[in-house]
């Protein structure tokens, strides 16, 4: 088949720019092809806006596939809805009992304390504070990671795309039902102002980035370690404890409290919760900046480490 440039390609003619690669080795020239052009670079003439739109749709599709994949496991979804509700209710009661005896403990009244507990549980599941949820270790172990490298997309972004889908499913199927039951059973507090609500919504997005950034770094360590579960377990514990999900960070005594407030883990649970309850010390902007800084640092660290992980894989292969 000799490329015929005079002959306009059928559909999408305006998008095609590249001629077919030369003649074929096999003497099959007689078979005129209905496909005179290739797709490579076919978006070259799309404007910047069009490209951004295409890109947004692509990431939407990736996240949505990730979400649909999770929703296929009906029994798992059902089981986690129930278990989340049960855990939320139990923890809520525990908080009520404690605050009934000592109202005003840690600066919270009992409504705030229960709100903290119920909301905390929701944030823990949505942001997977219990660790994991990123497939990399398994894929490294089974060699499926090679498939990821053949894809024309950045590695970290790909997993972030999947994570967004997962978080959406967890938010809808775990956090929301438990939250609704919490509202029905307990006296919960709503954000005081529209501004607080907006700041909370923003902080959710940043919390997702921080949580992903942390777990991604942990997951990447699978490139270097054969037995990954130890790292995973340690990191999950640390993350859980310092996120403020078990106990508000303000209850941490002395130096432990100071350190805990600076670590990134608080940005996942404690900061969104403070913004929701309106208990931020230095105003919402500062809190959001704290989250954004950590998100940036972690994602950049992730990018650097990704490059090294891939280089390691490519150069040493295991």
């Amino acid at each position: 088949m000799i490329p015929d440039r005079a002959n306009p390609p059928p559909a999408q003619a305006n998008l095609a720019t590249l001629p077919a690669p030369a003649e074929l080795a096999a003497a099959a020239a007689a078979d005129a092809s209905p496909r005179p052009t290739r797709l490579v670079g076919s978006l070259g003439r799309l404007g910047r806006l069009g490209r951004a739109w295409e890109s947004a749709r692509m990431w939407g599709a990736i996240s949505s596939a990730s979400a649909r994949r999770m929703l296929r496991y009906r029994a798992a979804v059902l089981a986690s809805i129930v278990s989340n509700i049960v855990l939320t209710v139990l923890r809520g009661h525990l908080a009520l009992a404690v605050w009934a005896q000592r109202p005003g403990l840690a600066g919270y009244d009992s409504t705030a304390a229960v709100t903290f507990t119920v909301l905390g549980q929701s944030l823990v599941t949505t942001f997977a504070v219990f660790g994991g949820m990123i497939d990399i270790p398994w894929r490294v172990r089974t060699g499926s990671i090679e498939v990821d490298l053949v894809r024309p997309l950045g590695f970290q972004r790909w997993y972030l795309g999947l994570e967004v889908g997962r978080a959406a499913v967890y938010l809808a199927s775990r956090a929301l039902p438990a939250g609704i039951v919490g509202v029905l059973l307990f006296d919960l507090r709503l954000p005081r102002t529209a501004g607080a609500a907006a700041a909370f919504a923003m902080s959710l997005g940043l919390a997702l980035l921080v949580s992903f950034g942390l777990r991604y770094l942990v997951a990447l360590s699978a490139f270097w370690m054969t037995d990954f579960r130890g790292v995973q377990a340690v990191s999950a514990l640390v993350m859980m404890f310092f996120s403020g999900a078990i106990l508000p960070l303000v209850l941490f005594p002395g130096a432990l409290g100071t350190v805990a407030a600076l670590l990134p883990f608080g940005a996942v649970v404690q900061t969104p919760m403070d913004l929701y309850l309106g208990t931020v010390d230095d105003g919402p902007v500062r809190a959001l900046a704290f989250q954004a800084t950590w998100a940036l640092v972690l994602l950049l660290a992730g990018q650097t480490l990704t490059a090294r992980a891939i280089r390691r894989l490519v150069v040493q292969n295991g």
């Binding site: 496991y73 029994a75 798992a76 986690s80 129930v82 855990l87 139990l90 525990l94």
Partner: peptide, 17 residues
């Protein structure tokens, strides 16, 4: 329902709590 393995951890955590 093999994909409901979360239920085991949940029952464990819930009853322990």
């Amino acid at each position: 329902a093999p994909d409901a393995s979360v239920a085991i951890a949940a029952v464990r955590q819930g009853s322990a709590l």
